[in-house]
Structure formats: C-alpha cells, structure tokens
C-alpha cells in the first residue's frame, strides 16, 4: 500500500533491488516473546525490504509487533528464525559484540522524544555519535553542517533541556544520520509533538532519507504524517501487510 504524497521523488525503481544495493531486507522473520503459556508471537513470518533512499512507515495498534520489528531490524534482538540483511550483511546470527558493531556502522536510531544525552549540547550529541562509532569527523557528516541542514545550527550550543520537543527530534535525526548509516530506524518520532511539529519532523525525515540515500523505517501511530512516506505497511498481530 502506498498512501499520500511525499516531498521527494519515490524510489520505486530502487526498491526491487534492495538486496543487491544495500538497505534493509527482512526475510521470513519470526520472533516469540515470553515462556510457556505466556508465549506471544511478536513477529510472524515477516518480510520487508527497504531500498536505500526509501521511506517506509509501519502503522498498527499497540502490541502489534511494530517495536519488535524495529528491534530485530536494529540488531537489538535475535529472531527465532529468518534473516535480516543490513546493507547486504546478514546480522541474524551475529554475536552481541558483532551486533553492537553493526549498530555502530550501519544503523541510525531516532527514538521517541529524541532520547538525547542530557549532558551534551546539540553539536556534541553528533560528535558523540561519531566517537561511539569510532569515526573521525571526515568519515561521517560534518556535525555542524548537518545540524544546520536540519535547521538546528542556531541551537548548536544548547543542551536537551533547553530545546523544545521538535528541536530535540531534529537533533536526534541529525545524530542518527551523522555516521552515514545504511538504515535509519525511527521509533514513534511524533509521539510527543503537536500536529504542526509532527509534520515538520516527518517532512525532515523524508527529505533526509532521500538526501542521504538511507533506507528508513518509521514506526508510528500518527496517521496524519503518512503522506510523506514512500510506502505505508500495516502490522497486525505480528504480521506485516501492504
């Protein structure tokens, strides 16, 4: 299913060759949570491919498995079966240490409310991400330029508590992109924002997805922002449908 309009051209042609050209490919992934009678199938034979430069939204009710899909795609959880390829690399059976390396090198996360580090200024949030990834400034984006690109250049010296919710999300998006990841995973980015700011943030995500040619998966409850996405998928009871 493809809904609404986007601020950038759709990368439909790129989608078909996600496996070959990088991006995110989830093949037949199943994930169960809990033990015994309390076992829940969080992901049930999920298939998903997102090409570089494509912005995919996943909607669904609470408990439908959206966050579990992000966790599997983001190398935070190991699926019971199936494969997850990031930028052409299978991370399904990676050790915790290898998973951490994949997250450093291939994945950018945008969390709810930004989840910025309280002690760091906006500019330092980006520098810190480069430091964690073990990258020199030249290996990733220029942090200051990227901050300006997301409209936060004038708030470079401010800490999270001095920023509005929308500003924190903008910094969070820049932090996720500064290491030039192959895949951007976005968790409810508009959960704490009003309508206008939500629209701004998702517009920015769509723009940066196309600008940085990153494969973006956004999990959201907010149906008002779906018009900016290239594709919208629904998740119900652990199954993903287009």
């Amino acid at each position: 299913m493809t809904t609404g309009s986007s601020t950038s051209p759709r990368p439909v042609a790129r989608r078909a060759d996600a496996k070959e050209r990088g991006g995110l490919l989830v093949e037949g992934v199943t994930l169960t949570l809990g033990d015994g009678d309390a076992t829940v199938t969080a992901l049930d034979d999920v298939h998903l491919d997102v090409a570089p430069g494509e912005f995919v939204a996943i909607v669904g009710p609470s408990g439908s498995g959206k966050s579990s899909l992000l966790a599997v795609a983001g190398a935070l959880t190991t699926p019971d079966s199936g494969r997850v390829l990031l930028d052409g690399v299978d991370i399904s059976a990676a050790s915790p240490r290898e998973k951490a390396r994949h997250r450093r090198e291939r994945i950018g996360f945008v969390f709810q409310s930004g989840n910025l580090i309280p002690a760091l200024t906006s500019l330092d949030q980006l520098r810190f991400a480069l430091d964690v990834a073990g990258k020199r400034p030249g290996d990733g984006h220029d942090p200051r330029k990227l901050l300006e690109r997301v409209g936060m250049g004038h708030r470079a010296g401010h800490r999270p508590h001095q920023l509005s919710g929308g500003e924190r999300q903008r910094v969070g998006i820049a932090r996720a992109l500064v290491t030039r990841p192959a895949v951007l995973l976005v968790d409810e980015p508009t959960a704490a924002l009003d309508r206008a700011r939500s629209d701004d943030i998702v517009t920015l995500l769509a723009h940066e997805t196309h600008e940085s040619a990153v494969a973006t998966v956004m999990v959201t409850h907010d149906h008002d922002v779906l018009g900016h996405c290239d594709r919208v998928l629904s998740m119900v009871d652990g199954r993903l449908t287009e």
Binding site: A100, R103, R104, F111, I117, V132
Partner: peptide
C-alpha cells in the same frame, strides 16, 4: 539506565 540503553543502542560497546 535509559541513557545507557540509548548509547548501547547506538552501538557503544560495554568496554566503551
């Protein structure tokens, strides 16, 4: 704890 979880999600190793 939550901040550390975010940093670990970003890929920081335990050693780091």
């Amino acid at each position: 704890k939550h901040e550390l979880a975010v940093i670990r999600a970003m890929g920081a190793s335990t050693g780091y």
